[in-house]
């Protein structure tokens, strides 16, 4: 089993935005919000290929998602679209602002 430390960014994708309207139980929505994007070199180093399941763990929780290679991410950074899986990893401390840390979160990934 290989493991690595990464920084998680959550965010909007147009596919997630479209799938909001087909329904949050729709396969399109569930698939999109359960997909992790990762730099190709990081995937190779961890022995991962598109569609492989990985476990992602933060201080707050753990999820299992499928990974997809991305040429938009630098090494060491992963991306998961907004949705219930990503929110499992996000803590509730808001630093007195009301806003949880939803980008730039330290996570560990296991194959």
């Amino acid at each position: 089993m290989s493991a690595g430390k990464f920084i998680l960014i959550t965010g909007r994708t147009s596919k997630q935005g479209r799938a909001l309207h087909t329904g949050k139980d729709s396969p399109e929505y569930l698939e999109e919000v359960s997909t992790l994007e990762m730099n190709e070199a990081d995937m190779e180093e961890m022995g991962l290929k598109d569609g492989d399941e990985v476990r992602v763990r933060s201080k707050e929780g753990e999820i299992t998602v499928r990974c997809r290679r991305s040429d938009s991410l630098p090494r060491g950074i992963i991306f998961i679209p907004y949705g219930p899986p990503a929110n499992t990893l996000i803590g509730v401390d808001t630093d007195g602002t009301g806003m949880p840390d939803s980008k730039g979160i330290e996570v560990e990934i296991c194959k």
Binding site: K24, G61, G83, P84, N87, I90, V92, P100
Partner: peptide
């Protein structure tokens, strides 16, 4: 839809 959008512990 806060259940989908909030951190799990708050939702």
């Amino acid at each position: 839809d806060p259940v989908a959008n909030f951190p799990r512990r708050a939702a």
